[in-house]
Design a protein around this nucleic acid. Structure first.
Lengths: 179, 179
DNA sequence: CATAACATGTAATGAGTTACATGATTAA
DNA sequence: TTAATCATGTAACTCATTACATGTTATG
């Protein structure tokens, strides 16, 4: 349950409206913790009820822009949450289910899906490489920059790992020497 | 929504009871698509209602073992589902939120969490390597074996990628030349 | 002033988890 | 015969998504 904490962090960086947060709330946040605007508005209301953030306008200001900012209590809550342990999320991908099922009920033309996935990971890798070149000319400038660059490198590694696997998978599925 | 299809695949391989499926329903399935027994029993009921699987005993046989098997319609449904496209799941990990937040509100002692995560990925990698050595002496024996081995290799790649990233991350966070 | 774009919100649904309830079988 | 274990199931709750509803501001 880290959406509220992602929002707190984004608002500590700089006050923003709900819609600004919803538009992938930050160059870096949106890539690894996306959320719909409905989710974000709900969480913002909860964070306000808990006294962690505040805005000028009162509740149910439909149509009127509300700019949110984090309070001191919000900052404390975030700092306490950061070092908490939680279990590693397991690899959970329908593609693995499809492959495993394909091993049982025989060839089904899965190759096209693999190629589509490969393309999407290649595109994302190119996007991340563009961000790296543009936003991190000096990644060791200070601690904050170094950690942001580290998070971006996680994305680069993630896409690279998938591209490697999918290339491997296409080789196996298209191998005429099998089956 | 691939749990029902994972169950169909497992039952096509060999009929099983709900509990047997719940105990990570298969050496290979459980590692990349886990599910609680409550979820599994609910899905089994739905699959039965849809005429895709069947068992001998009638419904609400509390305490009595029910062995499920897939029907022909279940096999058809699975074969039709396998090649369907769905979007690549994005990197979604609370650790990325923690790191990104750490870049904003300063050092918080996140290193211990990173070391714990590193340990858990190293353990899982060793587990997968053991499975590979034991169950895949000849990974190119036939198409089914080759695809199962491929899925295992995804797991190996996944753990390797995380170990690389976490090692990198510890270097950055513990670097005295920053911050 | 009409309409497009901006901005916030509710309702319904489904997936997944936690806690609990119940019955059958086996072993001390 | 009591306790542990196996086995199946219900209830309540949270998270996330989809669809929809409503009001405001800018622009032609």
């Amino acid at each position: 349950m880290s959406l509220p904490h992602a929002l707190l962090a984004a608002l500590l960086e700089r006050p923003r409206s709900g819609l600004a947060l919803a538009r992938q709330f930050d160059k870096s946040f949106g890539h690894f913790w996306s959320a719909s605007h409905q989710q974000i508005y709900r969480e913002l209301s909860r964070l306000e009820a808990d006294g962690l953030i505040a805005s000028e306008a009162e509740a149910d200001a439909r149509g009127r822009k509300r700019t949110w900012r984090a309070l001191a209590a919000g900052r404390d809550e975030l700092r306490a949450w950061i070092p908490r342990d939680d279990p590693a999320p397991s690899l959970r991908d329908t593609l693995m289910v499809r492959l495993r099922a394909e091993a049982i009920v025989g060839p089904t033309g899965l190759e096209a899906t693999l190629r589509a996935r490969l393309k999407s990971h290649e595109d994302k890798l190119a996007l991340y490489q563009g961000i790296e070149a543009r936003d991190f000319p000096d990644p060791r400038k200070d601690r904050a920059t170094a950690v942001q660059h580290l998070v971006l490198r996680a994305g680069l590694r993630h896409e690279t790992y998938w591209i490697g696997f999918l290339t491997d998978a296409l080789t196996v599925l298209c191998d005429p020497g099998l089956g």
